[in-house]
Structures are given as structure tokens and as C-alpha cells.
Simulated assay, not measured.
Amino acid sequence: MVYKILAVGAGGFVGALLRYGLSEWIPTVDGFPWGILVINWSGCLFLGWLLTAAGKTLHISPTWTLALGTGLTGAFTTFSTFAVETFRLMDQGQWLTAILYILSSVIGGLLLAYFGVILAAVRGANEAERSDQ
């Protein structure tokens, strides 16, 4: 149990630093929070891929899956910042931008998570095919 807690904590530390660095590096353009959108999109893609591939093709231990999934990705992505950015846009009267941000976050996040699952499944199928030969 202690190893799992430490793994989540270590992953969370790295994920939080990555999120902060990327959010500082990727600019907000005309009020649109591109940094948080890119962070959340990439987290959706990675988590979809990781949770599909971890046990099937990568054989990642449950502790590492916790570190990378719950810790790193959980701290890297941020629903609370998405919510605050959305309310900031609405408070500034940028309703169209807020709606575009909501739609792109939700629809894009779901599509990227699905794409991550598909990537892992295709890789797994390719590896299984190679091992049968």
C-alpha cells in the first residue's frame, strides 16, 4: 500500500510540474485557454492509450499504472482549471468563446481518449500477429 501511495505522489509531482510548464509555454490567444485545452486533450489521449495498453501489451505493473494514470495524468490534466477558465470567459462576456471551449474540451477529449484506446488496441493486435508468426 505504501508503494502505491508513493507512486501516485511521485507521478502527481511530475504531472503538476508538466502542467504548469506547458500552461506557461502555450499562450492564451484572444482569451481562449489553449494551454489547458492542449493539456487536457493530451491527457485524454495518453490515459486512453495507457489504460488499454498497460495490462495487454506493455505489461506495466499495477503500481506503475497508478503512478502514470492516477498520479501523473491526474495531476497533469485539470477539470477545475477547465471550469474556472470557462467561467472567466463567461464573466468577460465571451460567451461564444466559452461555448467553443466547452465543446472542444468535451468532444475533443472524448475523441482523443477513444483514439488512445484504438492506438493501443492496434498495437496490441500487431504484436499478437507478429508473435503468431
Results as ranks from 00 to 15, higher is better:
residue 130 R to I: 14
residue 39 I to E: 01
residue 43 G to R: 02
residue 43 G to H: 08
residue 98 A to P: 00
residue 58 L to K: 01
residue 125 A to W: 12
residue 36 I to G: 00
residue 53 A to K: 04
residue 95 W to F: 14
residue 119 L to M: 15
residue 32 F to E: 01
residue 52 T to V: 08
residue 45 L to K: 04
residue 52 T to W: 09
residue 5 I to F: 15
residue 89 L to P: 00
residue 84 V to S: 13
residue 26 I to F: 05
residue 41 W to P: 02
residue 27 P to H: 11
residue 28 T to A: 11
residue 11 G to L: 06
residue 48 G to F: 05
residue 12 G to E: 06
residue 62 P to Y: 07
residue 110 L to Q: 07
residue 107 I to N: 01
residue 6 L to M: 13
residue 30 D to S: 12
residue 14 V to K: 00
residue 87 F to D: 04
residue 13 F to T: 09
residue 32 F to I: 05
residue 33 P to L: 07
residue 115 F to E: 08
residue 105 S to P: 02
residue 31 G to Q: 05
residue 11 G to T: 02
residue 18 L to Q: 04
residue 101 Y to R: 00
residue 121 A to W: 11
residue 131 S to P: 03
residue 50 L to G: 07
residue 64 W to A: 14
residue 117 V to A: 09
residue 10 A to N: 06
residue 20 Y to T: 05
residue 90 M to L: 15
residue 26 I to V: 14
residue 93 G to A: 07
residue 31 G to T: 03
residue 97 T to Y: 02
residue 31 G to F: 08
residue 105 S to C: 04
residue 29 V to N: 10
residue 30 D to N: 14
residue 53 A to I: 02
residue 55 G to S: 14
residue 101 Y to A: 00
residue 110 L to P: 00
residue 59 H to G: 09
residue 109 G to V: 08
residue 50 L to W: 07
residue 57 T to M: 13
residue 13 F to N: 04
residue 64 W to T: 14
residue 19 R to K: 14
residue 45 L to T: 02
residue 124 G to V: 03
residue 113 A to N: 12
residue 58 L to T: 03
residue 70 T to C: 02
residue 99 I to M: 03
residue 16 A to K: 04
residue 13 F to V: 06
residue 51 L to A: 12
residue 3 Y to R: 10
residue 88 R to Q: 14
residue 109 G to H: 07
residue 92 Q to I: 05
residue 38 V to K: 03
residue 71 G to M: 05
residue 115 F to K: 01
residue 1 M to V: 10
residue 89 L to V: 00
residue 118 I to S: 05
residue 56 K to C: 03
residue 32 F to W: 07
residue 119 L to H: 07
residue 65 T to W: 02
residue 84 V to P: 08
residue 50 L to E: 08
